[in-house]
Design a binder for these strands. Sequence first.
DNA 1: GTGGTCTAGACCACG
DNA 2: GTGGTCTAGACCACT
Lengths: 129, 129, 129, 129
Amino acid sequence: MIQIATGDPRSITQQIVDAVRRQIAAGELAVGDQLPSVRGLAQQLMVNPNTVAKAYGELSSEGWLDARPGLGLYVATPRQRLSDSERERRLDDAVQRFVSDVIGLAFPAETLVARVSEELDALRPKKRA
Amino acid sequence: MIQIATGDPRSITQQIVDAVRRQIAAGELAVGDQLPSVRGLAQQLMVNPNTVAKAYGELSSEGWLDARPGLGLYVATPRQRLSDSERERRLDDAVQRFVSDVIGLAFPAETLVARVSEELDALRPKKRA
Amino acid sequence: MIQIATGDPRSITQQIVDAVRRQIAAGELAVGDQLPSVRGLAQQLMVNPNTVAKAYGELSSEGWLDARPGLGLYVATPRQRLSDSERERRLDDAVQRFVSDVIGLAFPAETLVARVSEELDALRPKKRA
Amino acid sequence: MIQIATGDPRSITQQIVDAVRRQIAAGELAVGDQLPSVRGLAQQLMVNPNTVAKAYGELSSEGWLDARPGLGLYVATPRQRLSDSERERRLDDAVQRFVSDVIGLAFPAETLVARVSEELDALRPKKRA
DNA sequence: GTGGTCTAGACCACG
DNA sequence: GTGGTCTAGACCACT
């Protein structure tokens, strides 16, 4: 289930992309599972179908989803699409951004590291019953 | 010294804001230090003075800088402006965003945590020579 | 309806910010209500769209509004953003400023207090018909 | 004794004007008292003499001070310089501004009124020993 | 259509 | 010289 938050600074497209990525990473969506149709999800989230289509397109080009024309979208087999240097660059960007975001909040470094660690643990793939 | 990267996804304004915040947090700029003038920094970075002014304005409203018309901008005395609940909310947002950013990069959680930790250590205030 | 007064010592931006804050505080704008578009309000007030955008940006960063790119601006859910010490500091500043402003007008203290009290009552949230 | 605060959003000129007005209103400076010389006060406050001269000029034109050429500046006999309508207008502006300043702080109206009342009482003219 | 960003250039008050 | 404000017009991403 995806929730769109009105106060969220991210665009609606980005919220959908993030939510699906998390569901796949956490194992809530397994390889081969089918995703809701563009029209169905758009109706459920009360957003423009173009917005959902764009999010799905982004996820496909990132290698999370495979489109089977006429059948729908399915969770793809994990593969490493990015070069090592590109992965390194993105990690660095994300770390820099995180630090910039929390730099003014006056939390001790230990607290920050602990929170990141907890959140990553929570996302570790879980088997479904 | 501030550097503007053209390939950076952040806006120029945001790059300036981030750079100044980091310099203050790292102790490279001490309380009471004067910042480069709007026009001077704009010329040095080859950007429009309005862009620098916007960045400085944002830093002032966030409490990092004090503007003294006719004199210049100075590093402000730190104070806790935000409520605990707001700080908690922002930390949570930052953690969520970081996780979303790195979720597809297939790095082990330990690596991610270590990188965040290193980066935070690097920002711990240092005395200047 | 917002009115811009040319003789007002406040900047146009500030007049817009104040007007919107008051409308929200008085309940004329409810949580979730959409605001006039940047371009629309600019045309109505006969000011530059950038000026309206600056006012809206300030209101957003203060937590009064949520901007949803492509959709518009909406009244945000209220929350306590500032720490108690910061609220106290700002109240003190406002009181000091008020006293400085009226100190030379030779009104009896009772009159001044009564006027402030009336004005605050007038702002108490009202149901709309 | 006048104090110039670096973090104060008011201009230095305005800080001096406000401080002198308060001292006169509170009776710390009595009618006929001499003020510090422009040069002397400028040196003490570490500001430009032009700034002090400008503040004194403003106070003189508002009727708080009388300049006795060659002798210095003295606290003037109170008189009502402004028309009733002008006084009313200024009071209204000050009230509006105060309300705008505190509208987002979420203090109960009673607290706000009480604080204004206290501050006005503290300024009631006192005899000096 | 929406808001967001950047550039360019003008004018003001302050020190 | 300083920062602050406003105007004008362009370009971008999002819906």
